[in-house]
């Protein structure tokens, strides 16, 4: 009885968190092939939402619909409604450049530009006109690297190539680069899959800290990671959203049998 009450309270609390992004009946087609089937998924503000599910179930595809990176793929078509703060992001009047400045992205493989660390981080602010003077730019770079927990490691070699860093440092550099544009939402597509456990732990810690200022959606193939970093979890299977729930509930008492099976490692 009491348990049910607390659960209800928790749910209520979670439900009062404002919705940052809303996906309604989102379907995605690659040419004739359908990759997502009417997905309804909400992303809450200052929350880490984890997308899990077996390979090829459409996690990355859904993630890419959130900042319209799918636009860059030939033959990719998105239907349904996706909103950011209530505004339709697929509205023809929306400038995709502006959208991507508000919804940043970190990729699976660290992909720093083959330029200096400084140039990597300052590139976004420069093209978006976020800093008017060199001093302002310096400050943005420092602040972003601080936020990505990389400042102390690279402050003496800001003008060395970003590709000379270790894999984990490169990924945090990419996070700093995304953060430098001051986005509202940061999308991460399996950001730790190319990293060793120590670097992974650092990035996870970082995600924890970033949550205070950003809304984060992270794709992960690691159940443990989803459990560690996220508050909400969405489970995909064969292009369908199977279940979306609080992470705690998802991993202890999921509503859907398929989620249960997947978490227990019965498929995937």
């Amino acid at each position: 009885m009491t348990e049910a009450a607390t659960e209800e309270a928790l749910e209520k609390k979670m439900n009062t968190v404002p919705l940052k992004m809303v996906g309604k009946d989102v379907s995605v087609y690659y040419g004739d092939k359908r990759a997502l089937y009417d997905v309804n998924l909400n992303v809450r503000e200052n929350t880490v939402t984890a997308l899990i599910g077996p390979s090829g179930c459409g996690k990355s595809t859904f993630l890419r619909t959130l900042n319209r990176m799918n636009d860059t793929i030939d033959g990719c078509r998105v239907t349904g409604l996706i909103t950011l703060d209530g505004g339709d992001i697929y509205d023809p009047a929306i400038d995709v450049v502006e959208l991507r400045a508000r919804v940043g992205m970190v990729f699976q493989k660290p992909n720093p530009f083959p330029k200096s660390i400084y140039e990597n981080v300052s590139y976004g602010p420069r093209i978006h006109g976020l800093a008017r003077t060199k001093a302002e730019l310096d400050q943005v770079v420092e602040q972003s690297l601080q936020r990505a927990g990389l400042w102390n490691e690279v402050k003496d070699r800001l003008h060395e190539s970003g590709t000379g860093l270790s894999g984990g440092q490169q990924q945090r550099l990419c996070i700093a680069r995304a953060v430098a544009v001051s986005p509202e939402v940061i999308l991460m597509d399996e950001p730790c899959s190319a990293l060793d456990p120590i670097a992974t732990a650092k990035v996870e810690e970082l995600i924890h800290e970033l949550r205070a200022n950003f809304t984060i959606v992270i794709v992960t193939h690691s159940m443990q990671q989803a459990a560690r970093v996220s508050q909400r979890t969405a489970m995909f299977h064969l292009g369908n959203l199977v279940e979306e729930n609080d992470t705690d509930k998802m991993f202890t008492n999921p509503d859907d049998q398929r989620t249960q099976d997947y978490i227990m490692g019965r498929f995937g």
Binding site: R100, P112, G124, I127
Partner: peptide, 12 residues
């Protein structure tokens, strides 16, 4: 990946 990185940052 370089193209994705730039596009993802909002570069045209």
């Amino acid at each position: 990946s370089i193209r994705s990185a730039a596009l993802g940052l909002g570069a045209s």
